[in-house]
Design a protein around this nucleic acid. Structure first.
Lengths: 132, 132
DNA sequence: CGGGATCCTACGGGATACTG
DNA sequence: CAGTATCCCGTAGGATCCCG
């Protein structure tokens, strides 16, 4: 997330910024996972099967910085850290879930189009297959 | 809101896929630009100030492959190629614009949180009476 | 004009290893 | 347990040149 574009006079800076956040590999999954309440680090790590600890940390730091999650440290031994959505985070969840639901609902349409496209890309070769 | 412990479910694959598409640097800007009708290649290039020719081509190809955009070639000289949203593309525009609108509406909240976080990060150990 | 083909760099992100 | 610090690699993405 870096530049700011001028898009037909409208102000798209913050928009692109947020979209960049949402678009990275884990942010949305973390936010959705936190959607049903606070979780500690290791819980998130288990829930998000496949995430590396580095990326989980980085993702949570980014979300905390932007005010989407709170980080609560319990000075116990062993340490325990809870992450929870803020009001802003729960707010973000709404349009994000909407997009997610759209994705689920239209996944087959996209896949169909994709197969069609890939098939069409090979097709010109087929009638002239003897050329090889 | 539904229980979100289903990250292992394969229904998350397509979602992440769509989110990844939406999250890349130019896709959303292209889709939004095409939201008000067909545009030709050079028009898009000019509208999306700063995009490279390579990325515009790649983005449009991806969108075409996924069925979000149609590509129409006019066999004239010089050549002319029009791009236009499909029904699926216009459909995608809805949740994407919703997210975009959310981003515009909450940009200041995010920026405020960010400044707060960065300020706190610079500040050494100063446990002055925290206003909570 | 609308790209295809290349080259090159920055950065996202995974895999350890180490620490308090 | 919850990180921080390195190393390393793949790829997104910009710049350039060329072609129908």
């Amino acid at each position: 997330m870096k530049p700011s574009y001028v898009h037909r006079g409208e102000d798209c800076r913050g928009v692109s910024e947020v979209l960049a956040r949402v678009g990275d590999k884990w942010t949305v999954l973390v936010v959705v996972t936190l959607g049903d309440g606070a979780h500690r680090f290791s819980e998130l790590r288990r829930a998000l099967n496949g995430i590396s600890q580095k990326m989980l940390t980085a993702t949570l730091r980014g979300l905390e910085r932007d005010g989407f999650v709170t980080r609560t440290v319990f000075p116990t031994i062993p340490p325990r850290v809870d992450y929870e959505l803020t009001d802003l985070g729960r707010d973000l969840l709404v349009p994000v879930m909407a997009l997610g639901n759209w994705a689920r609902a239209n996944r087959d349409r996209v896949e169909a189009a994709r197969r069609r496209f890939d098939a069409a890309a090979l097709e010109p070769v087929l009638p002239v297959a003897a050329a090889r």
